[in-house]
Amino acid sequence: MPGLISRLARLFAGKPAEVHALMARNQEACAGLNQALPLAGHSFVVLDTELSDMDVKTGEILSIGAVRIEGLTIRPAASFSSLVRPTDMAATGSTLIHRLTPESLESAPALDEVLAAFIDWCGGAVLVGHYIDLDMGFLNREARRLFGQGLANPCIDTLRMAQAYEERRPNAYLGAHLDTLSYSLSSLSLRHGLPDFPRHDALADALQTAYLFLFLVKKMRGGRIVTLKDLWNAQRPRVGLG
C-alpha cells in the first residue's frame, strides 16, 4: 500500500501548477503512514490554537502551540509556538480572553509564514488536539486559502478519547451523570490527577493535552492499545450509549 500512496503522491507532484510545494511535501510525508505499527513507532504532534472567535467563518488564528510525542513520550524540547498577526486587528474580539495584547500581536509574523513553518514542522505526524475539529477547521480553512488545500495529516481527538474512556468505566463515576461531567481540558486534567499547567496559552494547553493524551492512550482498554488502528477504534463512542 505505501507503494500505491507514493505513486499517487508522484502523480500529484506531476502537476505543480495545482499543488503548492508545501502541501506536496505534506502529502508526501503523510503518505507512508502505517496504522498497524505500534504507537511508539509513530510521531504525534499535539497542538492547540488560540482564536479570535470560535466561528470558523469569521474567526482568526492568533497563535499556535504544539509539542511532539515520539516513542510515546513527550519531548518538551521539541515544541512549536508562535503568535500570529491578525489581518483585522480591530475585530480580534477575544483579546481579553487570551490576554494577547494588540502590541504583541502586531509584532508577530503573519499567518502564511507561521502556518507554512508549522506544516513543515509537523511533517507526517499524527495530529492530536482537544476537540481538534475546531483547530483543524481553522487550520484547514487557512491552508486551503493560502496554499490551495488542507492538511493531509490524520487527526486524533483527546476529547473523544476521554469520553470513550469514561463511558467504558462507568463504575469509576458511579452516581455521577456522564452527560454532566465536564470534558474541558482543565476538568479532565483535574479529574485524572494530571500535572497542571496553570497558564492558558497555546503551548501550555498543547502540553496539557499531551499529558492527557499519554494518560488516555495507556489507560484506555486496560492498556491494550498497541497500534494506531487500536487507538482509532477505541476513541469511537460506543454504539447505544450517548
Partner: peptide
C-alpha cells in the same frame, strides 16, 4: 484516518464543554 479530525457533529456542544470552563 484522514476524516478522523474532520467530522463536525455536535460541534457547538463540544465547544461549550471544552472551552466553557476555560
Amino acid at each position: 484516518l484522514s476524516t478522523l479530525g474532520r467530522t463536525n457533529e455536535n460541534k457547538f456542544f463540544f465547544f461549550l464543554a471544552t472551552y466553557g470552563l476555560a
